[in-house]
Design a binder for these strands. Structure first.
Lengths: 139, 139
DNA sequence: AGTATTCTCTACAGAAATAGTAAACATTGT
DNA sequence: ACAATGTTTACTATTTCTGTAGAGAATACT
C-alpha cells in the first residue's frame, strides 16, 4: 500500500495518453482515469516538467506524450512522484542509511532483493506494454 | 519506503532472538536491535499474540521464539505489522478495490506482479536464512 | 509477606505525509 | 475582446507514523 494517489494518477494519465489518438485535454484525462481534475492540475505539470508530456494552452490545447510509449517505462513515472523505490531507508541504492546492528545489516540484503525485483519489473514495463494489455482485455 | 518502523523493529527483534542462545530480555533486544525500548513494549506483545514468540515475566524472564527459525518466514512477521503487501489497494489478492477504468485495470496487472515478487521473496526467506547471513558476515 | 524484576496495557502528543479544494493567473486561438 | 485551456500556489482536513509515559500484572527470591 505504498503507491501514493498522485503516483497512481500520474501513471494512469500517461497510460490514457498512450492509448489516445492524438492529445487529450485535462478534462478528458480526468474522465478516462477517474482522477479528480483538481489533482491532475498538479500532476500534469509535474509530468511536463519531467519531459514526459508536453502541453498546449488555449482552444485545441491539451496534452501529448513527448516520446513513444515504448520509450517510457513505468519506473520513470513512478520515481518521478515517489522517489526511492526501496522498501526501507537503509536499503536504497544510493546513500543508504547505515546499519549499525548486525540484525539490520542482514535484513538489508532481503530488502535489497525486494527493491531489485521491483525495479526490474517497473523498469522493463513500458506504456506500450500497458496499452497492449488494455486493448487485449478490451477484446 | 513503505516498511514502517514497527515492522522493521519487529523483524529485527525476531532475528535477534533467532541468533541468541536462549532467551533475551526486553532491554537486551533493545540493545541488539537499536529499537527504542518503549516501542518494543508495543511490538513484542504483538509478536506474542501472533504466536511467534512467548514471554515470561519476573526475574529470569524474557522472550523466546515459539518455533524454530526455519519455520518463521519474513512474510509472516511483515504481514503481522503491515497487513497487505500489495503496493496499491486495487492490486491486493483478497478483495481488491474495483478498477472501473481500463487504464487502472491494466496497471493492476503490473502491481500484481510487484506484489507477487515481493511475496515470493519474503515467503521463502526464513529467520534461519537471515541468521546464517549474519554469521557469515560476522566472519 | 515483601520486594525487585520483568513483561503488559493503554492513552496520548507531536510530527509528517497524504489527499483534495480553490482561486487567481497565464497563454493561445478566433 | 473573449472563450478555452493549462499553471501556480496556498490552504485545510485527515490520516498515519513515531515515540513517550505511567499504571498495572505476573513471577522469583528471600
Amino acid at each position: 500500500m505504498w503507491i501514493s494517489k498522485r503516483t497512481d494518477y500520474g501513471t494512469r494519465a500517461v497510460l490514457a495518453l498512450a492509448m489516445a489518438d492524438g492529445g487529450l485535454k485535462l478534462d478528458e484525462i480526468a474522465a478516462r482515469t477517474g482522477a479528480p481534475r483538481s489533482v491532475l492540475e498538479q500532476v500534469m505539470p509535474t509530468l511536463r516538467t519531467a519531459g514526459i508530456v508536453r502541453a498546449e494552452r488555449g482552444p485545441h490545447g491539451g496534452y501529448r506524450l513527448n516520446n513513444a510509449p515504448e520509450d517510457i517505462t513505468l519506473e520513470r513515472v513512478v520515481r518521478l512522484f515517489q522517489g526511492q523505490l526501496a522498501p526501507i531507508g537503509y536499503a536504497t541504492r544510493r546513500n543508504p542509511d547505515p546499519c549499525p546492528e548486525i540484525v539490520r545489516a542482514s535484513l538489508r540484503e532481503v530488502w535489497a532483493e525486494v527493491r531489485d525485483a521491483t525495479i526490474e519489473i517497473l523498469g522493463r514495463t513500458t506504456f506500450a506494454d500497458l496499452a497492449a494489455l488494455a486493448s487485449r482485455s478490451r477484446g
